[in-house]
Amino acid sequence: MADRSPHDPLAGIAFDRVPPAGAYGVTGEPGIVVSTAEEPFIALVAARNGFGASVAERLGRAFGGPGLDRPHAGFGSGSTVVGIGPGRFLVLSRAEADLPGTLRAVLGTEAAITGQSDAFVLFDLSGARVPDLLAKGAPVDLDPRVFPVGDAATTLVAHIGATLWRSGETGWRVLVARSFEASFTRFLLGAGAEYGLRLEGRG
């Protein structure tokens, strides 16, 4: 793992390459740890007209969470349901390789389902300073007092479209279009350098 200058954490890293794993910014115990998370199977669910509440409830029962048609993230064992718009949800799964097939069995004709596993990269951010880091890029109030665990927001982070949610007391997840992986990682390293940031390797 390379140790990088705290003053210029991106020095020498090609702008169009995902930066390598390592410690960035101030030295010592990192304030923020970043990895790409392990729910690689993703599908978009769009409820047909009149079925938003029913689809939300079915998704909650099958994949976890309160089953509400809200900007909220519900957590199951190895799965997450995130509301991204009225009647629209992203479902993420750790192990369900045929996620669209499973969703079709759960939802029948109440929703349109499209596989999106290749469309996004999921970042896992942990550490007490994550809200401070994200505040540098997101025009949303992410203070833990007003953004409790399970809250979600589809917004911009550093001008990049993102869906983010708070997954735990100091855990956050950000879903970004895959082609923005390098740009978004650069934002994380630059914005997180003052807290010390460890970027974990990918498998």
Binding site: R70, P71, G85, P86, P139, A153, T155, L156
Partner: peptide
């Protein structure tokens, strides 16, 4: 109505 208060630049 869905997202809450958001900056006008998102619109």
């Amino acid at each position: 109505p869905y997202c809450g208060a958001r900056d006008a630049h998102e619109f």
